[in-house]
Design a protein around this nucleic acid. Structure first.
Lengths: 341, 341
DNA sequence: CAGTTCTCCGAAAACGTTTGCAGAAGTCTT
DNA sequence: AAGACTTCTGCAAACGTTTTCGGAGAACTG
């Protein structure tokens, strides 16, 4: 006995009304007598009526679905952002269709195509590490579907975006390391085509220079986010004639792994080399030594991005804006050389 | 110039055909001359025609959406499962609507209601830690919507489920600890209403007993998955007259935090107490000492659950089954007392 | 060549809503 | 008391498909 959904027609028949009146009574849109409205809403309640989203959407020419393209769900940063997005999206009665680029530009393009074939009402995206140009998003824009980029954003397109204060965060982190007495600070940078990697790199450079230290290009490496990456550049750092006495890593996972390798090589942390990570991931607090890091509010980032997207969906004329979420330095022991803890 | 979607009618007009013929030509369903089919498909290709999923779904009485209810997205285990689910769901051309119970039975019930109001074609769920009974899922079953439980499953309902081999995994982990010479092994168990917690507890108990050790109830604590939890029960263990010399934890996060507290209290790992975690999360490999754990294949779990769900969607008569995914012991240093590394 | 079977295609209904238009009451104005 | 508003409601079209039914013509059968 397949639950036989209650339709608007059922209500109309039982009340001797037309479907139009019932519809109007329910959507509270236009004029219908208070009395009949009461009648309708009561019966609807009683029968546990829910309008069929399929029919409504077809009529309204909306899918009530927003697309999300991220590099990797399992990346904690993105799953946190997803949680934030999901919160506001659900509150709006929308659904999300997720797809992962897996850091591949090829997959990203394919995802965009799929999103377009389905009909989505809006698109949220954080670019893959391989993405250089944003041409594949032009098609989406042509259909008047709003896009909001977050974290790994694009700057060519006339779209809204929300990012964290990468430059400042980076500057503050490096500044802190210098305050602790570090003279040779290494930086593990992200893929250089990502704007946030570049911003962090700039923050790093400026902090070094403004403090009168020597900016040694040998102390900068670019992470490819590959798994065997970390061991390689850690060993590289340690093999230098003048190894770094401080490291600003691309993320906590990288920092934690570096600590492991450095300790194994017989150096002490933070004594020989101080380390600070990025993202404030779960385990950083409990490793040895506890990891200093930058708390990047991924959840809030997701929420803001989603809200911004709905702004655009609700108001076609809304001009594109850029929102910046403030991060926060979290100092633990891995970066504390001085004893004034 | 809002992209003016190409419809089946446009094709029909340009070819002087009826919409029905075009539809048939495209769906390759029934009889239409090869020649006209060619004509239609070519033009469709040329115009970049995509059937409007909204209309198709309304007609087909399907939403092409499956619901997913999990405790927390940011929990790495679940985000991995989500990645697996997402993979097969997307391949089937379905979308996912996600909701989190946040470990609350109240939220879980609400989520189920929402899923029902939207129309979903299937439901994937992993229960909250508070869930005792599964009555709130009966409504779903009444609408003939298939449900598949995974990991944190329900046993009352006549539904398919996929789990990991909790009992065996637990047994093997504890067995390993005993092999290493542990005599007093503690167990951090999960909420006792979750079947997988109970299975692991049983595995633990049997391993203890079958090896002729004394099963000390004082060495069993139940985790509530709250964040301040770990410190409390770690201190409890250490305060015992006869503290444990081995611990089998509920998950890696807990194990890592315990290691932190135990080291801080002046004990050595694995010397004084050996530890093994669960889930094989990212950082376990690089902490000090590297964490032994049980690798639980969340991705595969998600994939299997999703595939099972589609089996049910495609075939209403499919009987409910239970699939068990094998886990694997990952031995690192945190559990190695003997030197035969 | 009349009857039968096939092959292909079109008309129209259907899925469950929303909405423009118009008409039926009722109320107000003068 | 008749016109002019209001206020409420119903009809029917529409959203873009799929699908049932039946019909036209071609091709075969005897």
């Amino acid at each position: 006995m397949k639950g036989k959904r209650v339709t608007i027609k059922d209500i109309a028949e039982r009340l001797n009304l037309s479907t139009s009146t019932v519809s109007r009574a329910l959507t509270s849109h236009s004029d219908v007598k208070a009395e009949t409205r009461k009648l309708v809403t009561n019966l609807a309640e009683e029968l546990d009526y829910h309008p069929d989203p399929l029919a409504v959407n077809l009529k309204q020419r909306k899918t009530k679905v927003i697309g999300l393209i991220i590099p990797k769900i399992v990346n904690r940063f993105f799953s946190k952002a997803l949680a934030g997005i999901q919160e506001v999206v659900n509150r709006e009665g929308y659904n999300i269709i997720i797809s992962q680029s897996n850091e591949s530009i090829y997959a990203e393009k394919k995802n965009v195509e799929d999103m377009l074939a389905n009909r989505i009402d809006g698109l949220l995206v954080s670019l893959s590490k391989e993405t250089m140009s944003a041409d594949h998003f032009l098609k989406v824009l042509n259909t008047e579907t709003p896009i909001v980029f977050f974290d790994r954003v694009n700057e060519e397109l006339e779209t809204s975006r929300v990012i964290i204060d990468d430059y400042e965060a980076s500057y503050k982190a490096v500044d802190h390391l210098i305050e602790q007495g570090c003279k040779r600070i290494a930086h593990v940078a992200g893929p250089p085509n990502l704007i946030n990697s570049r911003n962090r790199l700039e923050g790093y450079k400026d902090a070094i220079r403004n403090n009168g230290l020597f900016l040694d290009k040998k102390l900068i490496v670019f992470s490819s986010y590959e798994s065997d990456d970390v061991e390689i550049y850690t060993k590289y750092f340690l093999s230098l004639k003048h190894p770094p006495d401080g490291i600003f890593a691309i993320n906590d996972a990288s920092a934690i792994e570096m600590i492991h390798h450095i300790k194994k090589a017989g150096f002490s942390i933070p004594g020989d080399v101080a380390i600070i990570g990025f993202n404030n991931e779960a385990n950083g607090e409990f490793i040895d030594p506890p990891l200093s890091t930058v708390d990047s509010p991924a959840l809030q980032l997701g929420k803001s991005a989603a809200r911004l997207l709905f702004d655009h969906i609700d108001n076609e004329e809304r001009p594109a804006t850029c929102e910046i979420i403030k991060s926060r330095l979290v100092i633990r022991e891995s970066s504390l050389k001085s004893n004034r803890k």
